[in-house]
Every structure is written in structure tokens, then in C-alpha cells.
Simulated assay, not measured.
Amino acid sequence: MKKLINSPEQVVPDALRGMAAAHPDLRVDHENRVVLRASGAVEGKVGLVSGGGSGHEPMHGGFVGHGMLDAACAGEVFTSPTPDQMQAATLAVSGGAGVLHIVKNYTGDVMNFEMAAELAAAEGDVEVRSVVVDDDVAVQDSLYTAGRRGVGATVLLEKIVGAAAEERRDLAACEELAKKVNGNARSMGMALTSCVVPAAGVPTFELGDDEFELGIGIHGEPGRERRRLGPLREVAEQLVEPVLQDLPAADGAPVVAFVNSMGGTPLIELYGLYAEVAAICEKAGVSIARSLVGPYITSLEMAGASVTLLRADDDLLSLWDAPVSTPGLRWGM
């Protein structure tokens, strides 16, 4: 294993120290491993809290800032944060309008966020609501979940609901909006290689030189099946067609198309994949209104990619276009 680390135990604390040093508009609660806006809670604004295991950067800490999250909890690599971390984050961002938890559908995340909501309500009299993201069409259940996994749609949801919170939409409206985004988004991922969790020191799984794993999750877990690697257009079809088949019909509504690197796949390959995705969508009569291409929800150094399509009406597109200023996503500021 070759990694730029001091030790497996120090990976997350060292990364958080680096975030604090690199981004003065953020504040890091090192005791609880929570990334926060330096400006603190905003009176009258719904606070948005997310989090999960580390190793998916820039998600979630890199999406803290204007137009997205108010706080993000960092667990150990591929391990859920604790309820205490989530409670600390919730209380820190409460500005009197309630707090919305954005939770990827992994068993530990769901359970710990539920416990944190109960603790925050009891200690700080904070109204907390939660939305669980479960957009992955690859598998119904996995090693980490009961039901579909939460993957690429998490990024789109945090951006769109973050913009709504900046507009001072109330807690119920933000919750319904988050459910709407989740209900209209579908994702599928693939891997060319495994990743190496620092504490393990060995790849999570092995692939032959001519193989890829279809339907992987974001924790390095294997996917739906192993297939022979062919031309990019064939791989794109295997990713996009299941997404289109599962995507809710919306009377010709366009989509936001998100092509994501799992960490080790470079932009030259991602843009090639996006070209194929766009061609498949055009052939299917699905118009793309907005796009996002890059490494936004990763799995350490895994080589691979995922495709997310979100059916988007005018309100969702307007919120997508709204200004955002975070380490991981920035425009319009």
C-alpha cells in the first residue's frame, strides 16, 4: 500500500486539519470531527447537516458553505459518524428554523442520525427532520444497506436544498424538496479497480485486467456483477440504460446529468463517458438541461465512474443555478 499518510489512525484528523488551514471560511470542530461554516448558525435559516464515512471527498465536508450544507460530520474511513458527532453538528447550526438531516441510505448512517435527532430535540429543543437518499438502481440490498444505497444524488440534493434554505424556505418545504429530488434521481456506478482502505492495507476486491465491476457502491463493495471490459460506448450503455428504465416519467421534463469519478478516473475519461451519456439520452428522447462532471463523491483511489440523472422542473433548475460557494462546488458568487 502506498498512500500519503502519517498513519491509518491519523488519516481523518490530518485531513480535517488541512481543511481548516486551507479554507478560512470553514471552521472545524476537531473534537467532534465536524466541518462547519465559520459564520456559524444563521438566524431564521434551516440548518442542513449531512455526513458519513470519510474517503468520499469532497463529499461531505467539501460541500459546507453558502448554498449547500451548514455542517458535515466525518466518520472514520467508510464508517458512519457517531450520534454524538451528529448531535454536536445539529446543535451548532440551529438558527431557530429547524435542522434537516440529509442521510445516505446506509444502515449505520440512518441509525446514528435518528439517535442524534432524538438527542438534539431533547437537549436543545431543536426540530429535526431527516431525508434518506436511496438513488442507486444497481442492487436492492447490499452489504451496507436495507434497500437501495444513497450515492450520486446526494450531491445534487445537497446543492438544490441548500439553495432553498438560503432563500429561507421553511423546514417542511426543504424536507419535501429533498424528497422530490431523491424521488426523481437514479444512479449506477462501475469500477475498473478496487480501492485500499488505509486500515486494511489491501484492496477490497480484485479484478482481472479485462474485467470491470458493474453496480458498485461507494465503499469499495462489489457490485451487481463482473463483466468483460469493452469500448466506452458499451460501458456507458450498461450504466445509463438501467437508470433510464428506472427514472420516473415526468412529461418530457429535462434532466441534470452528473458523471462522477470514483476517485482514480481522470477527466479525459469522464468527458468521454459524458459524450456517450449525452448520445444515449438524446437517442432516448431525454433532454439534458444541466451537467456536472468531475470527482464529487469518491471512493478513495478507486478507478471507475458513476452516472446520475435527475428529472428537473423549472424550480429545481433555478435552485441548481443559484450561487454556491464551497470548497468542492462553486459558481455564481
Rank of each mutant, 00 (worst) to 15 (best):
G285K: 09
E9N: 00
S187L: 08
V34W: 00
I268Q: 07
A172F: 10
A153Y: 07
V46E: 06
V42P: 02
N260F: 13
R37K: 05
H23I: 04
N105Q: 04
G272S: 11
D70G: 05
I288K: 04
S194K: 02
L69V: 09
E127V: 13
R311C: 09
V151C: 12
S287K: 14
M19K: 03
C281Q: 07
G55Q: 05
N184K: 13
D14S: 03
L207G: 00
V293P: 08
D321L: 06
V46A: 01
S306I: 09
G18K: 00
A89R: 03
M111C: 04
A305M: 05
L69S: 07
D141G: 09
P13D: 07
G162Q: 13
G252Q: 11
I218N: 00
V196D: 02
D14W: 07
F113R: 01
E221H: 00
E206Y: 01
M59Y: 10
K45A: 14
P198D: 01
S306Q: 06
A41F: 01
S7W: 04
P323K: 13
L239E: 09
L229F: 03
V255I: 15
K45P: 02
A250M: 12
M86Y: 01
L267K: 14
E57P: 03
A71L: 05
L309P: 04
A185N: 09
G44D: 09
E43M: 09
Y271W: 14
E211A: 11
V34Y: 01
G52T: 05
N6Q: 15
R169P: 02
S187K: 06
L171T: 06
F113E: 02
R17Y: 00
R227D: 08
V132D: 04
L171V: 13
A191E: 01
H219S: 01
E301R: 05
S50M: 12
I5A: 12
P231Q: 05
V28T: 04
S291G: 10
L244A: 12
L48S: 11
G51V: 00
R168Q: 10
A121R: 15
G215C: 00
E269S: 11
A185S: 15
E206H: 03
G18F: 00
A38L: 08
S7N: 06
A250N: 12
G217P: 01
Q85W: 03
L156I: 14
V202I: 06
W331C: 06
M333T: 12
V256C: 14
V35I: 11
V286M: 13
D135K: 09
D134F: 14
T82C: 08
E301P: 02
G263W: 05
M188V: 07
G332D: 15
E127S: 12
G215V: 00
R224Y: 03
H101G: 08
A89M: 06
D125H: 14
D210T: 03
A185L: 10
P58K: 08
F205I: 01
